[in-house]
Simulated scan of single mutants.
Amino acid sequence: MSEDSEPEERATARPLFVPVRTGPAGSVALMYRTPLGARTAVGFTSAQRLAATLGPAHDSVRLSHRALRALAEPLGITHIAVDPRLAAPAPPAPSVVSPVPHAGSGRPRGEFVS
């Protein structure tokens, strides 16, 4: 790699395994979100790491770090996560349910009456 390449690119000189969705028109690289919601491209240093994170039947293509960056940048994605671990999504915030009056009873719906 050249001296002017990004440090991240020098560390991942080997092609990455990039998760894709394959359809009739070909393969499309999948983009993900970080836990804070930022969009990111994802690549894995081995097929085993990809399978451990996304499952054994997940399709992938081999791309260089530079090629993955070139795919992501037109989408406004500047970060590439290498070997990310799968994280469960945050639980949904509890919803606040306001009582809706039941027609004719004057009591809120969902309230138990003994």
Rank of each mutant, 00 (worst) to 15 (best):
D59F: 02
P74H: 14
R109A: 10
A47N: 10
T40N: 03
A72Q: 12
P84K: 05
P7E: 13
A13L: 00
A90I: 11
L71V: 15
E3A: 13
L36P: 00
A29N: 12
T12W: 02
T22C: 02
E3F: 11
L68A: 08
A25P: 05
G43F: 07
P56A: 08
R109G: 06
R107N: 14
H58M: 10
R14F: 00
S60E: 02
A41I: 08
P91E: 12
T22H: 00
A11C: 05
P84G: 06
V20S: 00
R66L: 01
P91Q: 12
R10S: 07
A81I: 02
T53V: 14
P19Y: 02
R49M: 15
T40C: 10
P94N: 08
P15Q: 01
L16P: 04
A25E: 14
R109E: 09
S64L: 00
P7M: 11
P101M: 10
V82I: 13
R39I: 01
T53W: 05
T78Y: 15
S60R: 02
R33A: 03
E73V: 12
A67K: 09
T40Q: 06
E111N: 13
D59H: 01
H65Q: 01
P56R: 07
A52E: 14
V82R: 06
G37W: 12
A38C: 04
L68H: 09
R39V: 02
P56S: 08
E8A: 14
D83N: 15
A90R: 14
G76Y: 14
A41F: 06
E6T: 12
P99N: 05
R107Q: 14
F44G: 05
H102P: 00
M1F: 11
R69E: 05
L68E: 06
V96F: 10
V96N: 03
V18Y: 06
P84I: 07
S46E: 13
L54Y: 00
H58C: 08
R109T: 07
P24D: 11
S114Y: 15
T45A: 12
A67F: 03
V82S: 09
G104N: 01
A13V: 00
Q48G: 15
L63M: 15
L36V: 01
V28P: 03
I77V: 15
P101Q: 11
G37P: 10
L71Y: 12
P94L: 10
E6K: 10
G43E: 06
L86G: 03
R85H: 07
S64Y: 01
F112A: 13
T34P: 03
P92K: 07
P108I: 07
